[in-house]
């Protein structure tokens, strides 16, 4: 069953060059799809176009068969730079996106707590971002995104600002976190430069290349979960992805 369906997307900056063209991408239920490509191919821009934070130059995005015409928390973006409001506690940061959800204050607080607990931040509800580590802040951002009851989660390099140990720890949990039965999530689109991370997490990988960028290949990762990086097949997939990337195309 197709959840997110992007058809013939292209984007051109006003009075500037075209970033990508002919992007056809879909996600199925309970599927984590990754997008990889050399720097400058417009992967982050693609996520913003999918969320309709910037409208596509051409093409359309469908969610459950209905065209997306404006930003909606049903497609929730987690930023590359971890964005948490410094004047709000962890709980308030999550509570913020429940303002318009027709629920009582008490229900909103309970749901916020539940989301924080889901990402492992039970007991840290009253901490301010500056009192948390980068990994904790990213979990708050994730809890906030999940609290908004999205069907699709867009993750833009979500671990790039974390140290390797913390990133590894969250990576191991993220699949279980996002597809937890207690969330409304149906699928995830992950943008990443880290091919190990992509093989660790993704079910399918779209490879973007060129200028303007296009989808040049789609690789299905058929590895059982939890995935083991020492598995030779794991490295085969990393190699496949690496060979699929045309580094020269961005010159």
């Amino acid at each position: 069953m197709v959840v997110l369906d992007c058809q013939e997307l292209s984007y051109r900056f006003p009075n500037s060059k075209t970033i990508f063209v002919d992007i056809n991408l879909y996600t199925a239920k309970d599927e984590l799809v990754a997008v990889v490509g050399p720097t400058g191919t417009g992967k982050s821009t693609l996520l913003r176009v999918i969320a309709h934070l910037i409208p596509p130059t051409t093409g359309r995005v469908f969610l459950d068969g209905v065209e997306v015409r404006r930003p909606s928390s049903r497609i929730s973006l987690v930023h590359q730079s971890i964005a948490t409001f410094p004047w709000m506690t962890a709980l308030e940061n999550v509570r913020l996106v429940l303002s318009d959800k027709n629920m009582t204050e008490d229900e909103a607080i309970q749901l916020s707590k539940k989301m924080l607990s889901l990402v492992g931040l039970e007991g840290a509800e009253n901490l301010y971002p500056k009192e948390m580590s980068g990994g904790m802040r990213q979990r708050v951002a994730l809890a906030r995104a999940l609290g908004a009851s999205p069907e699709v989660l867009l993750l833009d390099e979500p671990f790039v600002h974390l140290d390797e140990l913390t990133a590894n720890e969250i990576r191991k949990e993220v699949h279980e976190l996002v597809f937890n039965p207690e969330t409304t999530l149906k699928s995830v689109v992950l943008v990443s430069h880290n091919l190990h991370e992509v093989v660790q997490l993704a079910d399918r990988v779209y490879i973007m290349n060129g200028s303007p960028a296009r989808i040049t290949d789609v690789v299905r990762i058929d590895l059982p979960r939890p995935r083991d990086e020492r598995d030779p097949l794991f490295y085969d997939y990393v190699d496949t992805l690496y060979r699929g990337l045309d580094i020269r195309s961005i010159r």
Binding site: R48, A51, L53, P71, S72, S73, I75, S76, L77, H79, S81, A83, F85, L96, V97, S99, D100, A148
Partner: peptide, 12 residues
């Protein structure tokens, strides 16, 4: 990022 968050989550 803050503006995008506000738009993404349709904050009134």
């Amino acid at each position: 990022e803050f503006n995008e968050l506000a738009r993404n989550h349709e904050l009134p």
